[in-house]
């Protein structure tokens, strides 16, 4: 890294630190921006939804994210869950659609998360424009990581986003392997129980014949 880089990057760092410091402002509704957005649905799927089927995201209530919010969500989710040896990228398993469905839901928990996610995405883009002159999604990967490094230091929006993205990502059977979940596979005969290598690794013995 040469001295010129140092000079140009330092102010960015300073601003990014400020970005983290003012993160307390999150959770405050942004009336002007939100008013233009579609609102979460008034009612949910009720107490008797059909369970034995596969739902599309947006099937039970309309998705409400704006194009900009969705774009930021896709980009951020892919930095958090990139394609690597462990599994696919978040965008391959449509994590952003899950989060959109979540923040568009009519239930209290999800409405609470909406009050963090929607302003958080907006705030993130605003800061990125100030610092880099671009929205988050249009940054280079190295710049996105720089932003995430700051946000990961206790930025509430980031923690909530990671929680939702994790819920979304690992819900998809294509990501079970990344986690180490094995199951949902019927077989006949007695339950096999944990294999020997597992018992050994955990230092326990099987006690049921």
């Amino acid at each position: 890294m040469n001295s010129q880089d140092q000079e140009t990057r330092l102010p960015r760092r300073r601003v990014l630190q400020w970005f983290a410091a003012v993160a307390a402002a999150e959770g405050v509704p942004l009336p002007s921006a939100l008013a233009q957005n579609a609102k979460p649905a008034a009612s949910g799927y009720g107490q008797d939804p059909v369970m034995a089927k596969s739902y599309e995201r947006g099937e039970v209530w309309p998705l409400t994210m704006t194009e900009a919010e969705k774009k930021a969500t896709v980009a951020l989710a892919d930095i958090i869950f990139p394609a690597d040896d462990l599994g696919p990228a978040a965008s391959e398993v449509r994590v952003a659609d899950f989060i959109d469905e979540w923040v568009s839901a009519p239930y209290p928990r999800q409405k609470g998360d909406r009050r963090v996610i929607i302003p958080g995405l907006k705030g993130m883009n605003e800061e990125c424009r100030k610092i880099f002159g671009k929205d988050f999604a249009d940054l280079k990967d190295s710049e996105k990581k720089e932003v995430c490094d700051v946000m990961a230091k206790g930025y509430h929006f980031f923690n909530v986003f990671v929680g939702l993205a994790s819920g979304a990502y690992y819900s998809d059977p294509r990501c079970w392997k990344a986690l180490g979940y094995v199951g949902n596979m019927p077989y006949g005969g007695p339950f096999k129980g944990p294999p020997e290598e597992v018992l050994k690794a955990a230092g326990v013995e099987q006690t049921v014949e």
């Binding site: 990139p82 040896d85 599994g87 990671v162 929680g163 994790s166 690992y170 986690l179 979940y181």
Partner: peptide, 26 residues
Amino acid sequence: MPKGNSPVPGHVLQGLYGTKLKEAAR
């Protein structure tokens, strides 16, 4: 089976993203 919620509590993923986060979850 993970279903909708994060399969691990948030505090073990705190401050992480990318492959490091996936490794922690695993």
